[in-house]
Each structure stands twice: as structure tokens, then as C-alpha cells.
Nucleic acid binder design. Structure first.
Lengths: 196, 196
DNA sequence: TTCTGTTTATGATTTAAATCATCTTTGAAA
DNA sequence: TTTCAAAGATGATTTAAATCATAAACAGAA
């Protein structure tokens, strides 16, 4: 999710309320049960949130990539409900819970800004879920294209929409053949109605 | 998503800021481009948000069911970016944008409460996405069980986790056979570690 | 109590996507 | 300017889930 605004939004927090960390693969930002210190942004790398059930079953809650964020809900609870594990070498930034809550309660502009950002994330995830729910590679690829999700390479696009890259290539070829989209160069596709 | 708290959260808004509507199948709460009046809660029925692109392509953004909400992001924009169409006879409630924004800016408790609710929704959708990403019926069903998503009937459960009900029945039988879960009656299953 | 509809459940068949394999194109580094 | 790695692209094969079909269990209405 595009999160460039996260840094911007939290830039106004006092410097003491922002702390950066490097994590090696396997290291954790926090563990289930730890006292909550704040929410996090991912500068680079990949952080996975995992919950452990009584019987030792591990459930993946979320995987946050560069520019993403995680543990927002921890702002409103005393303990983290999951582990945050680095899947690869990562750089993350923690935004202090108390500072955020204080700003939230005293700065209307900040309250509105953070609510807006959260609302937009909700919107994004809902779209994503509806997209994934399209049970047909061709239509899913088309919808993904229309949504503007093919920004860089097709493999990234493929994993975003939950398909193998081969399936995506085939769907794209198929859509071109049936005239619903147009090939505009290696790995570039336009649908009728997309601005050049 | 469990949204019982939405009504509670917005109960403190002045009565004039809440308005209920009935929609027949096919009727709309608003159309793309309309001036935004507020966000909505669904009391009963099913509302689908659809975006229309230049070339007339329809993209489903979200489908809100009873107890759910929609158009949160409209609180922060002037025009709706999609249509809200009733897929069946529905009763909905609109929460006035100005009233919410006013409360957000003047009532710290309200600001915190709404931010919390949004954060929890984000959490919910992320979990949902990770669940759907499990590309294997058996493991997906198991994860869904562990997540406590099998509350009433299996067909509902199946559609929530994006599988046919047959696939779910088979996965359940398979999980029972391999001893990972236990059958506790018709349509009732427990996994090791679930409280009775 | 019987009828009816729905949910649970399982078997058979089809199908679409994953996987595996191969080859081309391209761009960057040696 | 050759070499190499990665992305793009497509073909062949396998596989898992959807679909279609059927039936038992159950719940509620007549």
C-alpha cells in the first residue's frame, strides 16, 4: 500500500517519539505479550506478524513491505497480540504510542489526518479483497490493470493479485487477443480508457 | 466484520446526524460524483460499491453486509468515488459527515474511539487477506477454524474463506482423518487447543 | 406425522490454474 | 562485446479445486 504519507503524517511528532531500528532476518521488533510501545513503519525489508495459538499453531496476520506499516491497533491495547518477525534484513521505524495518543487527543488536524489515512487503508484492503475474490484469472488481471496495479514488473503484479506469473502472462495475451487491452511494449499493457 | 460497536460509537452523535433509509434491490444510496453527505452503516441487506471507469468498466470496490459499514473515506472527500447499490432489500443508516468531523476535531475520546475502530478494521482485513492467500484448501480451512471464523454454518464459512462448500467439507473430513481437528457434532469442529 | 427445504456430506468429472520446462529478450556488469 | 542474470513469454503436464450429481440428516411447517 502506498504509504509515503505515513512518514509525512508522523513527521510532526517530536524526534524522541520516532525511533529507527535495523533487524536481521529472524529478529523481532516485538513479541506476543510484550507491552506495547507504538506502531511501526517499514522503511525497507519485510516484516511478518505471526500469532501463536495455545497448541503452537502459527497464524500469519500480516506481512508488511517497504513503505507499509504495522501494529496500528497496538496504539489502543496494552500488549502486542502477535510477534513481528523480520523475513529479511529490514529497517523499521517505531512511532511512540503515547505521543500519538496525545496528539490524537489534542491536535484536531492530526486526528483528522490519521483517521483519513486509516480510512484510506480500509478502502485499499477492501478493494484488494474484492479483487482477489474474482475467481477467474482473466477477469482478475483485467480488474487489476484497471485498478492501476501493474506499475513495475509483472511478477510483482502477479503476486499482488494472487496468481502465478505464468497465469498472468497468459491472461494478458488472452485479453490482448480479444481486444480488451492493448500491448504497449514489453511488459506494458493499456486498457481501452487508460490514458497513454 | 463485527461492527456492533459502530452503532455504539455513533450513538453519541446528535439524532439529526443519523438518518435511516430503506433501499429496494437496485436502488442506490449515492452515485459516483455526488456530493458526500457521510458514511453509512448497514442494518440489514447487502450494499455493493461499484466504480465505473471511463470505458464503462464496472469494478466492485466492496460489498457491505449487515453490521458492516461503507464509505468511510468519503468523510474526507467532496464527492463519492463510486456508486452504492443495494443488491437486495436493505436498511442502512447514514452518519453525517460534518457532525463526525466536528466531533473528531472537538472530542478527544471520539477521535480515539474512531481511530481505534478503524485500526481494528485494518487488522481484520489484513488477516482476511493473509488467510485468502493460503493457496491450499486444507490449510486455509484450518487457519479459518483457528481464527474462529466457523460460527454458524459451513456455507457461510466457505464463502468467507473463498472456497466452495464442497471443498470445505472435504478439507474438514481430511483434517479430522489426520487428527488435526475433532468433529464435535453435525457441522461443528474443534481444533486441538480450542476451548470447548 | 408427513412433507418440504436446507444443510451436511461424499462421489465423479471437468476445468482452470499451478507447476515444470524451455526459449527469447533485455539490460547491466565484467 | 561478451557474459550473465532476470524478466518476459509460451508450451506441456499435473493437480487441486470447482462443478455437477446424489443422498442422508435434520428442522420446521402443514
Amino acid at each position: 500500500m502506498k504509504d509515503g504519507l505515513l512518514l509525512e503524517l508522523f513527521a510532526s511528532l517530536p524526534p524522541t517519539a520516532r525511533q529507527e531500528f535495523n533487524l536481521d532476518r529472524g529478529q523481532t521488533a516485538f513479541l506476543q505479550g510484550d507491552n506495547t510501545l507504538g506502531m511501526y513503519g517499514v522503511i525497507s525489508g519485510k516484516i511478518q506478524l505471526q500469532r501463536h495459538t495455545q497448541a503452537g499453531v502459527v497464524i500469519v496476520i500480516h506481512t508488511a513491505h517497504a513503505e507499509g506499516s504495522f501494529a496500528e491497533a497496538s496504539l489502543f491495547s496494552d500488549h502486542y497480540h502477535c510477534d513481528a518477525v523480520a523475513l529479511e534484513t529490514s529497517r523499521i521505524i517505531r512511532y511512540d504510542k503515547k505521543a500519538i495518543n496525545h496528539r490524537l487527543a489534542t491536535d484536531p488536524d492530526f486526528a483528522i489526518a490519521i483517521t483519513k489515512r486509516f480510512a484510506m487503508q480500509i478502502q485499499f484492503y477492501r478493494r484488494q479483497l474484492e479483487l482477489i475474490a474474482i475467481g477467474n484469472a482473466k477477469e482478475r488481471v483485467f480488474a487489476g490493470l484497471v485498478e492501476g496495479m501493474l506499475k513495475s514488473d509483472i511478477k510483482t503484479f502477479a503476486s499482488q493479485i494472487g496468481l502465478s506469473h505464468e497465469a498472468v502472462y497468459r491472461a494478458l495475451a488472452n485479453l490482448v487477443a480479444s481486444g480488451r487491452i492493448e500491448k504497449a511494449g514489453r511488459g506494458k499493457y493499456l486498457w481501452n480508457g487508460a490514458k497513454k
